[in-house]
Amino acid sequence: MPLRTEKVVRQGLFLALALILHLVEAFLPPLPIPGVRLGLANIVTLAVLEIQGPSSAFTLSLLRVLLGSFLAATFGTTAFWLSLSGALASFLVMSSLSKFSRPRFGFLGLSVAGALSHNLAQLLVYSLLADFGGFVYYLGVLAVAAVPTGMVVGFLAYWLCRAEGRMANAGFAL
């Protein structure tokens, strides 16, 4: 059993990492397809889901969206609701797939599924806000856009988990 302090420190480090990625992404120019994002902060959500389990991952993604919106001064705006819906949807899908799905998905599949649900949730919020009728036409584009972004995010999450595992094996309690 890890100590409580150790857990708090780990959570803090992962939250800091997620916040940095969240802000980096906020500064990147938006992609031209509504609802499609790289989802860099999803790297940390997926890694924490694997390392610490769903409850930590949930807290992390919620805190990340909240604090990120305070730092970027977007709390309560459209951007905030978009990132909240995306983060919650991808957390729900990734955590339930990682727990219940047989056959097992790898990092790649989890992250592609997470990216897809993230995109879908954002497009849904977009459509509701702007009364956009073209939802159906975008499904195909969104489905295929989730593959490259999900691959990058999945690989980086795997890499982060391996790095954390190596450090833990060497006796550093990250």
Partner: peptide, 8 residues
């Protein structure tokens, strides 16, 4: 977990 599986 593996990086990728057949399900992916």
């Amino acid at each position: 977990r593996d990086f990728y599986t057949r399900a992916d």
